[in-house]
Each structure stands twice: as structure tokens, then as C-alpha cells.
């Protein structure tokens, strides 16, 4: 197993108060890692949250757990190939940011991970997408989507109460069952993890659309978390929000990464630098470069990456 040790560039953004952590980046091209595979020697940090792995454990490896990966994934809309032979893995415990100019295929790649791209009639996919060693095509699509949650550009709570929004995914086939009592602990837990509980605990029956934009987006996070996804896909989740809401959402994302593998599409390179552990740069459907955030932003290997990130980080 070929492991490459990498020192991430901590110290930018809100992650600065988290102790710097050492990380093993696994070269996916050579070593596909299966679920539960253990990267490296016995880990004294087993069971600890990633951000607890830090200063005191200098030189110790980090638990890496792959949740999803794509293999030579191509997606075409008619004749236009939006994503070309992309191979990438999504790991729990870290935030993967997809960056690139508009129309480079990053949103298409994201939407293919929960097969939402199939709603576009002209879309055609080749290559494989693996979730926990199983092709996503082997899953019932509704089951797949409850394991791979998604957050959209615009906050889009449903026109029902805050409680019903979070409970929506738990209820069977649109019926009101199971009863509120059974769902309540799950709903409360999801709202707490999304950092919204303190603000809405007294008015769970209020309409969700009366919340502010930032609260709505955190409600959407809670709604996704309630169905216990393993992967959370975020499609520019802060593009419609003000800076304060954005920073709250970013904090929430960083806190969630220990439990859910997170993939975020963003046009905001500063945001990617603040919250991402790994960054993948796409250009015209090609996966140009992927690696640790510090490496892609600090020392990009490809000229095209350099040109793109150079604007903001030159």
C-alpha cells in the first residue's frame, strides 16, 4: 500500500482554532481503499474525532475511511460531455471541495453521486460509482438518496412546519406515520447537529418558510441529517446567503465532517480554502488535479490549476 504523507496547510479561516492535524493522503489511482480498511500502523487515536487528532500525536497516522468513489465516470448531455473519465474518492472525516469555472461539470459530477442527474432526460452516464463497495445502480434509487443527502444553492424548506420538514424524510411514502413521539428524538438530534436547535426549539410547529435564509439552509441540513446519510453533497450551499449565515454554515460543515463524508461544490475559493481538507479542480469536464487543500492552493502541480487558483491566491 503506497501512502504519501502530506502536511496540510492549516491556519487559514475558521479551521485555525482546530489543532493542525497530520493526514495520510491515499493515492486513489494505485490503492483503492475499502470500507474499514486501516491506513497505517495501529492508531492510538481510534475512536477520537479527527480534530482531536493533533498536536499531541505528531507523526501518528489518521483513520481514513472511503465512502464513495467514481471510476472513469463520464456524463454526457446529448453530444456534450459534461464530465470526462473522472476518478475520485469521497472519504468520511474530511471535506472534499470541487472547484472550477462555471460549466466545468462539478455540479453534474455532484448530482451523479446520488443519481439526481438521471432526472435530466438527455443525461447519459458511463463508468462506475461505488458506495460502500456496491455500485450505486444496485441500490434502489430512493434508498441510495437517503444514504447520500444533498443540499442545494437556494434554501428550499417545504411549505410545512419546521418539525415536519425534518421528519419528512423519515416518513413512509408521504403518510403521516410514524407518530410524532417516535420521530421527536431524531428530529431534535438532527436540529442540534445542524446547529439550529437553540433557535427553533420553542417553535417547532411554525412554518419553515418564515425562517431567515441562513436558518432555512441549516434546516435543510437538519432535514438531510435526519435520514442519517453517509455522504452529504453540497451544491454551493452559501451562494444565496449573507456572510454571517455563510460562516455559521461553514462551521456546521466542519463540525459535521467527522460523522458524514462531505462533498462541496463552490465557486468561492476562499471558502474552499477555509473548510476543505481535499480539493479537486475541474476544467471543461476533466479532473485536472486533486489533492490536499494546501497542496492544490499552495503548490498546484498543473498549470491550469495554477491559472485558476492563482487569481485568488497568487
Amino acid at each position: 500500500m503506497e501512502l504519501k504523507e502530506d502536511q496540510p496547510q492549516n491556519g487559514s479561516g475558521p479551521a485555525a482554532d482546530v489543532p493542525p492535524l497530520r493526514r495520510i493522503v491515499v493515492e486513489s489511482e494505485t490503492v483503492p481503499i475499502r470500507v474499514g480498511d486501516y491506513a497505517g500502523p495501529p492508531d492510538p487515536n481510534y475512536g477520537r474525532e479527527p480534530w482531536q487528532v493533533g498536536a499531541g500525536s505528531e507523526g501518528e497516522p489518521v483513520w481514513v475511511e472511503e465512502r464513495m468513489r467514481t471510476e472513469d465516470l463520464s456524463i454526457a448531455y446529448g453530444d456534450k460531455r459534461a464530465v470526462k473519465d473522472v476518478t475520485i474518492e469521497v472519504n468520511s472525516g474530511e471535506v472534499l471541495a470541487l472547484i472550477g469555472p462555471s460549466g466545468c461539470g462539478k455540479t453534474t459530477l455532484l448530482r451523479s453521486l446520488n443519481r439526481l442527474v438521471e432526472l435530466t432526460p438527455a443525461a447519459k452516464r458511463t463508468g462506475r460509482i461505488i458506495l460502500d463497495d456496491q455500485s450505486v445502480d444496485d441500490f434502489d434509487v430512493t434508498q441510495l438518496r437517503s444514504r447520500v443527502g444533498m443540499l442545494f444553492q437556494q434554501p428550499n424548506p417545504f411549505p410545512m412546519s419546521i418539525f415536519d420538514n425534518v421528519a419528512y424524510g423519515l416518513r413512509e411514502r408521504g403518510s403521516k406515520k410514524p407518530r410524532k413521539k417516535i420521530l421527536e428524538p431524531i428530529v431534535v438530534d438532527a436540529l442540534e447537529r445542524a446547529g439550529l436547535w437553540d433557535e427553533v426549539s420553542s417553535n417547532l410547529s411554525h412554518p419553515a418558510l418564515a425562517l431567515s435564509g441562513g436558518q432555512q439552509q441549516r434546516l435543510c441540513i437538519a432535514r438531510s441529517l435526519a435520514v442519517s446519510p453517509e455522504v452529504l453533497l453540497l451544491d454551493e450551499p452559501c451562494s444565496a446567503l449573507d456572510p454571517i449565515s455563510t460562516s455559521i454554515i461553514e462551521d456546521t460543515i466542519v463540525e459535521l465532517k467527522s460523522e458524514v463524508a462531505i462533498v462541496i461544490v463552490t465557486h468561492n475559493l476562499q471558502q474552499a480554502a477555509r473548510i476543505a481538507d481535499r480539493v479537486a479542480f475541474m476544467y471543461l469536464g476533466d479532473m485536472v488535479e486533486q489533492g490536499a487543500a494546501g497542496q492544490v492552493f499552495g503548490a498546484p502541480r498543473e498549470e491550469r490549476t495554477q491559472d485558476y487558483v492563482g487569481g485568488g491566491f497568487g
Binding site: 432526472l119 437556494q154 428550499n156 435520514v227
Partner: peptide
């Protein structure tokens, strides 16, 4: 908006319940 429908699908719901 389309993304409201997609948000429901993304929670594992089918078209009928959406």
C-alpha cells in the same frame, strides 16, 4: 422551483409522495 422537487427526491422520496 425545480430544486424543491429535487430536494424531496434527494431525501429518498419518489415522485408520488413528492
Amino acid at each position: 422551483p425545480r430544486h424543491v422537487r429535487e430536494a424531496s427526491y434527494a431525501l429518498g422520496k419518489d415522485k408520488a409522495s413528492t
